[in-house]
Design a protein around this nucleic acid. Structure first.
Length: 425
RNA sequence: GUGGGCGUAGCUCAGUUGGCAGAGCUCCGGAUUGUGAUUCCGGCGGUCGUGGGUUCAAGCCCCAUCGUCCACCCCA
């Protein structure tokens, strides 16, 4: 019988890694709170149609990457591949968008059936930020500023750069897409195979093709700039001015096209060179049409999502986190002799310490040798070990042994313990 | 879905022309009977990913298969 292992592309996050995750999550929560964003939590499973209608029927995500299965009543359910659709659904369902403005965020696992590689997994985690009811470029700028502040707090601001673009209104983009497809269809045989396929699946992506031949053909293609509507253009110009005025550096990338159908006007990406092929660490944009598309009242909206695993990889490659984040214990209490009486005593002393202080107190349990107890005390990262044996039991004292400093071991009474500890630490 | 690299102890990895299955770290014990982190000694630990084939003999060669990593595609 072979051992059961985790599903491909779905990773365990082990105790030695969780401190980085907690650091990231706490930092994100604090920054978002500072901008007045509130958390929303939605189910991981939704009706399949929600994603089909929001992400786009012919995108790769919907066509081949969704974890879709039949519920017991034959309803088609899907593990969420992204968070925006669920967020919009929940807001709409509970009237959160009725004549009001919302600033929201969510965090959690997403699921896409893809071949795993660096920074890409089948269960991965996103932290998403969504705003509703604000149509101007000022909220776009706020979101970008918020993310820039976050990179600073995480210590990765030097390795990410901002790219922005505008996709125009849905109408202008559709008109451009039609003309682009019409033109490229006449040259179809000269396109690289990937681009030929994209002609029906994701034509805007052809602009991004790495084939030199295809790029030559694109030189003759219609130019999206000529299709941009006046409102989108001024929205974009205004956003750029706002970013300049607050000192956020950016690069306009006319080939920046987001993969999901629902975007319009502003799109942006934070990218890095440090993660190999998966350079996008955070991406988002405006999706003014989505709420209506899902059956609600027309509502302007803009948001973005971060790939948590990718951010973790970046943090690990760049910044040294304080050792205290990894420290299991401040104080380690262990028995000098493993009699029942001594075990009772160290249990009581540990509880007293937890009552009286905020210290992390770990107990040396079990019947190992004194040597192995002390080794574990050392490995716990604790600053001091408290040793209690038969003699200490009789005198109601503990031996205080400093593990990281050259300070003589001292015997103090249990009564004095919390007082002297509170002043020492 | 396509292409390439890699699968040997809990972890990191050696293993020569096909000839006894190895090291470091970790863990446990001892040197030091109630004192860790240094040093020394000893010990635990293996379906060499799996299945088949060639051979007197396979961790090593051949075939298949699974896993994993990286890349393409796509995306956060």
């Amino acid at each position: 019988m072979s051992k059961i292992k985790a599903i491909r592309g779905m990773n365990d996050i082990l105790p030695e890694k969780t401190p980085v995750w907690q650091f990231l999550e706490k930092t994100v929560r604090d920054v978002l709170a500072g901008y007045g964003y509130r958390e929303i939590r939605t189910p991981i499973v939704e009706q399949t149609d929600l994603f089909k209608r929001s992400i786009g029927e012919v995108t790769d995500i919907v066509e081949k990457e969704m974890y879709t299965f039949a519920d017991r009543n034959d309803e088609s359910l899907t593990l969420r591949p992204e968070g925006t659709a669920s967020c919009v659904r929940a807001c709409e369902e509970h009237g959160l968008l009725y004549n009001q403005v919302q600033r929201l965020w969510y965090a959690g696992p997403m699921f896409r059936y893809e071949r795993p590689q660096k920074g890409r997994y089948r269960q991965f985690h996103q932290i998403g930020v969504e705003t509703f009811g604000m149509s101007g470029p000022d909220i776009d700028a706020e979101l970008i500023l918020l993310s820039a502040r976050l990179w600073k707090q995480l210590g990765i601001e030097d390795v990410v750069t901002l790219e922005i673009n505008t996709l125009g209104s849905a109408e202008s983009r559709q008109a451009f897409k039609n003309d682009l497809v019409a033109y490229l269809t006449t040259r179809k045989d000269d396109l690289d195979p990937d681009s030929q396929r994209r002609l029906t699946s994701n034509p805007l992506r052809i602009l991004d093709s790495k084939s030199a031949q295809t790029q030559l053909i694109l030189n003759e293609a219609p130019n999206f700039h000529d299709y941009l509507d006046a409102e989108s253009t001024s929205h974009f110009e205004c956003l750029k001015a706002l970013l300049n005025s607050v000192g956020v550096n950016f690069r306009v990338n006319p080939r920046l096209v987001r993969g999901l159908d629902y975007y319009s006007k502003t799109v942006f990406e934070w990218v890095t060179e440090a993660l190999g092929a998966q350079g996008t660490v955070c991406a988002g944009g405006r999706y003014d049409g989505l709420v209506q598309q899902l059956g609600g009242k027309s509502t302007p909206a803009v948001g973005f999502a971060m790939g948590v695993e990718r951010l973790i990889l970046l943090i690990e490659s760049i910044s040294k986190l304080p050792a205290s984040l990894y420290q299991q214990a401040d104080v380690y209490i262990l028995p000098l002799t493993t009699t029942l009486e001594v075990k009772q005593k160290i249990l009581c002393v540990a509880e007293t310490l937890r009552d009286e202080t905020e210290l992390k107190v770990v107990l040396g349990c079990g019947d190992g040798s004194l040597k192995s107890h002390l080794k574990k005390a050392d490995a716990s990262g604790a600053r001091v070990a408290l040793l209690i044996g038969q003699k200490e039991l009789e005198h109601d004292t503990v031996q205080v042994k400093f593990l990281r400093e050259t300070i003589d071991q001292q015997e103090i009474s249990v009564k004095d313990l919390t007082d002297s500890f509170l002043t020492k630490f």
